[in-house]
Design a protein around this nucleic acid. Sequence first.
DNA 1: TTTAATAGTTCATAAATACGGTACAACAGG
DNA 2: CCTGTTGTACCGTATTTATGAACTATTAAA
Lengths: 119, 119
Amino acid sequence: MSRPLAHPNSEDITVAGILHALADPVRLAIVSELLKAEAGLNCTQMTDRLEVDMPKSTCSQHYRILRESGLIVSERKGVELTSRVRLRELETRFPGLLQSILKAHEQETTKTRRRGRGG
Amino acid sequence: MSRPLAHPNSEDITVAGILHALADPVRLAIVSELLKAEAGLNCTQMTDRLEVDMPKSTCSQHYRILRESGLIVSERKGVELTSRVRLRELETRFPGLLQSILKAHEQETTKTRRRGRGG
DNA sequence: TTTAATAGTTCATAAATACGGTACAACAGG
DNA sequence: CCTGTTGTACCGTATTTATGAACTATTAAA
């Protein structure tokens, strides 16, 4: 698979697709992490960062859903597949959407952390 | 048996829950319609407005998911169950979130309907 | 080239979830 | 009581999701 990774065009990105992709807590966390790492992260790095016991196949599926929803773009770098958020395109297509969702997620995370998840 | 319709407290509303609820096109449309009707709408009215052939049980299920996610509040009025969006609470809990999602939804809907401009 | 190691995808299957039909409950009017 | 209206509960079917095993793709070493 040298490259046929399916990335939708900006115009084909849908709200429902984005919401569905981000409706999963793990995927929401993935996108949140990706935003902190501008260089992008591959599955292995992501699994490590999230500190969850996630099988490779599951991470791959999550990435695929995020990719097909148009949220991330994946690029092969040697053996690895580095992904990052399609920030500019998303902002152009649906201004403020991703920002609001991630902001809300951070709020939520912050509140949760205060009760014993010091990390 | 008047069941005490389960409404989560503001603090228990989650981003993932909201996104999951709104990830369904029908539910997104329902919320969009509810926002236009401040007095609230019951299932029958909603089915009529959306002009979709939706069974009662399906509409009821959609309402339940929206209710349990904290997006709407349902109130008994005789035989009917009128629901409306928990606008203020949602705005307090996750400022701008619902607004952005609905705005994106409107953009998408508008774009789909026409191809350039006009009305 | 072969062999090994690393990173990720695809397949098969089981579990979870959603949709919609049917039966039923709650209320209003008679 | 009965009848009509509105919504819910339950269940069968269909779709979706999670994940281990096997497979592909790339790099390195010999």
